[in-house]
Write a protein that binds this DNA or RNA. Structure first.
Lengths: 350, 350
DNA sequence: CTGAAAGCGCTTACAG
DNA sequence: CTGAAAGCGCTTACAG
């Protein structure tokens, strides 16, 4: 049915019903796979649905069922990180795959500023999504809690900075960092610096804690001159490594809280005339595709962003479907992948 | 209002109306910023809206206005590429930013298989989105045309493989490739190979054509032994470079149709004992963040994925709002950014 | 400027 | 197994 504006008006359920000589209720039952429909009637209705190109109107359905079959994914992160760091895309892929399997849609909501994030709240509460996944939370982001209080199912990737009143999936950041630093210690490094992540994110805090734990266990005293901070970007890795070298030129090992920052650190080390790993051994975090692109390739703590995405979806639907009020915490293990930047014995899976 | 299941039932417009002692029509006018409302009445209604935490139900609104205020973004691409190649995220960012500015929502639809893509059609036609953006099209993807015939506004990133019946934004792939190869020629290279992209994508075809044009203009004869094909992934770059070296060990320049493939090619060149750029000069395409991570850094043809994203949104809303039936083609310029992998005089913007 | 009423296209008891 | 009817929460002529 063509209208003045060239837009094709969609066929309605009532039209299908009339064409097939049945009631609208029957068409609805056929469309929704209700088994209590006579096989012949079903076939007839299906034929007319195909012939007329009928597609159910989602808005009408949502209005009555209160299910939109879509999930909002909120990433409060500025441009600079989202498109530089493979992590975001990988988590998103995990989410997308799991959602596809459930025939649910993904509404992507990137909030580059706090103001934009605040603007999201009304939308998220308007029933356009059945549940919400957030990840890469900063500081005291109140949105998860606001949504939860509204009764909207929400789950979070990464331990929320101010504790969790919602279910979340986290990586064993501290454990992973400890393993990375322990590796450097085993290789005989003794002046081990770290480039930590942002301290308003638990991933940043926990990886730094893991670094400190490993040194403490090894009986090495903590030296704040060996700690520099970045924002999980390449440029901040460049800056942080320069600072560290200026403060402690005798550094012989560096644990960097992300591969992207490690790639920046590597550049600075090389520019300073140091050989990696001979003079300075380097360990990154993420085991992202970047780890294979640098020269030398990066030893890195592998996390599983795709699995995190998948688990977030499972957790969310636990809440949505079972109305499960329990707060669940899923912790994902890490694994050290040894490559050339540390000079260790390469892993099989490197 | 708390229900049995702990879900908070949303306040309706009627409840706000009753509380404020006005009609539902008036509340609707206030919510939608209709100017024909008495200032005092408006204030009173707004107070009750805030007090009750009223948020309009999108499904109900969509049902009558036929506008969902959301846009579907369809990327028909397997996992391997989407999360390895910064290009996708960058285009997405451009789209997301432009959509945010218009207060429109982004429904992300990743189709990893043709079957999944087919499954998208009913959803896209169910009125859940006001328009559709597709990019990274392969082969004879019929979806844009199917949607167009349904009267659904659709625009495409990259020239559609089988010609365009829809508006699109494309990069000057051929021109960019020609510039890249001309750069190698100017540096005195004479045995210039190429790693082309997939030939079921116009970006792949056009960049190869640009390579051939540049050689033809220079009076060099075409040699198919100098052409290898990849799929815009790092691994395919590794494979293709190995093939090329086996066929023509005398190669002294390579134009690679993407930075990700170039990073793979670089690894093979280095492993073969060749120095880059002294023995083999390398030019990539994209000027993605990867170009800065390799050693040496990559000379590359810069394209503007974020601008592509933004332009796609503009084009789409031209269709949606003006019911503009004209097919528009937007062509984005490229720029050669010279870094160390080609051994040329570095650009200021490198 | 304001309100009563119809209608958007579905689903879902309810009755048969 | 099938149908008539109510209702989901809005917007929008229409009348005043």
């Amino acid at each position: 049915m063509r209208q003045r504006d060239g837009q094709t008006r969609a066929t309605t359920m009532g039209e299908v019903a009339r064409a097939a000589g049945v009631s609208q209720s029957t068409v609805s039952r056929v469309v929704n796979g209700n088994p209590r429909v006579d096989a012949d009637v079903r076939r007839k209705v299906e034929r007319h649905i195909r012939r007329l190109g009928y597609v159910p109107n989602m808005a009408a359905r949502t209005l009555v069922t209160r299910r939109s079959d879509s999930v909002g994914v909120v990433i409060p992160e500025p441009a600079s990180r989202i498109f530089g760091d493979p992590f975001f895309a990988q988590v998103l892929r995990g989410i997308s795959g799991a959602l596809n399997a459930r025939r649910q849609r993904l509404v992507l909501l990137i909030a580059e500023t706090e103001e934009q994030e605040r603007g999201l709240a009304p939308y998220l509460m308007a029933g356009h999504v059945d549940g919400i996944i957030m990840y890469s939370l900063h500081g005291d982001d109140r949105l998860p809690d606001v949504l939860r209080r509204r009764g909207i199912p929400v789950v979070v990737g990464g331990l929320p900075p101010h504790g969790a009143h919602v279910s979340f999936v986290d990586t064993d950041n501290a454990g992973g960092a400890t393993t990375g630093v322990a590796h450097l210690l085993e290789l005989g490094r003794r002046v081990i610096a770290t480039i930590a992540g942002p301290q308003d994110m638990t991933a940043g805090v926990d990886r730094l804690e893991g670094y400190r734990d490993a040194l403490r266990v090894a009986g090495l005293e903590a030296d704040e001159a060996l700690v520099a901070y970045g924002e999980f970007t390449r440029e901040s890795g460049v800056r942080a490594m320069s600072e560290l070298l200026a403060r402690r030129p005798d550094i012989d090992g560096v644990f960097v809280a992300s591969d992207l920052m490690a790639s920046g650190a590597l550049e600075v080390l090389r520019a300073s005339g140091r050989r990696v790993p001979q003079d300075v051994a380097l360990v990154g975090f993420d085991d992202s595709p970047i780890a294979l692109m640098t020269e030398p390739t990066l030893t890195s703590v592998r996390q599983s962003p795709e699995i995190m995405g998948r688990e977030l979806v499972e957790l969310l639907f636990g809440r949505i479907e079972a109305r499960d009020p329990v707060i669940r915490r899923v912790m994902l293990a890490t694994e050290l992948v040894i490559r050339r930047s540390s000079g260790g014995q390469p892993s099989i899976n490197a």
